[in-house]
Simulated assay, not measured.
Amino acid sequence: MAQKLHPQARRLRTIIVTVPIMGATALVLYERLVLGKPQRTLPRPNRDEVPKEPKILAEAAEKIGEPEPRV
């Protein structure tokens, strides 16, 4: 198990971890609010392009529905 850090070292570690996160967040918010950049979104496929049932699941369902051969 790791040794416990001195309180001053814990504060320094917290600062080192949080300052870059805060800086990146502030930059993104500045670009959105001041520069008017749109929010990034993930592309969504059209409903026509998405198959109703994936091929692998359809094949598995067929196998489950078939009775096992008896020997």
Results as ranks from 00 to 15, higher is better:
residue 22 M to N: 05
residue 23 G to P: 00
residue 34 V to P: 02
residue 61 A to E: 08
residue 10 R to N: 09
residue 53 E to H: 03
residue 46 N to I: 00
residue 12 L to T: 03
residue 40 R to A: 14
residue 30 Y to A: 03
residue 44 R to S: 09
residue 40 R to K: 14
residue 67 P to R: 10
residue 33 L to S: 01
residue 27 L to D: 02
residue 50 V to I: 13
residue 46 N to D: 15
residue 49 E to G: 07
residue 9 A to N: 11
residue 20 P to C: 03
residue 13 R to C: 11
residue 8 Q to P: 00
residue 23 G to R: 03
residue 42 L to T: 15
residue 3 Q to H: 08
residue 46 N to C: 01
residue 40 R to M: 12
residue 53 E to W: 06
residue 36 G to L: 02
residue 67 P to I: 03
residue 51 P to S: 02
residue 6 H to D: 14
residue 65 G to H: 06
residue 11 R to F: 13
residue 4 K to N: 13
residue 13 R to A: 15
residue 33 L to K: 03
residue 32 R to C: 02
residue 64 I to E: 09
residue 39 Q to E: 09
residue 18 T to W: 12
residue 30 Y to Q: 01
residue 16 I to T: 12
residue 24 A to E: 05
residue 66 E to Q: 15
residue 55 K to G: 04
residue 37 K to R: 15
residue 70 R to V: 08
residue 53 E to M: 11
residue 43 P to C: 15
residue 63 K to Q: 14
residue 68 E to T: 08
residue 14 T to K: 11
residue 69 P to R: 14
residue 48 D to L: 10
residue 27 L to K: 01
residue 18 T to I: 10
residue 25 T to C: 05
residue 70 R to K: 12
residue 25 T to K: 01
residue 27 L to G: 07
residue 39 Q to V: 10
residue 14 T to G: 08
residue 27 L to S: 04
residue 56 I to L: 15
residue 15 I to M: 08
residue 53 E to Q: 09
residue 12 L to P: 02
residue 60 A to R: 13
residue 30 Y to G: 01
residue 47 R to H: 05
residue 18 T to P: 01
residue 56 I to Q: 15
residue 33 L to Q: 01
residue 34 V to E: 05
residue 12 L to G: 00
residue 15 I to S: 06
residue 65 G to Y: 05
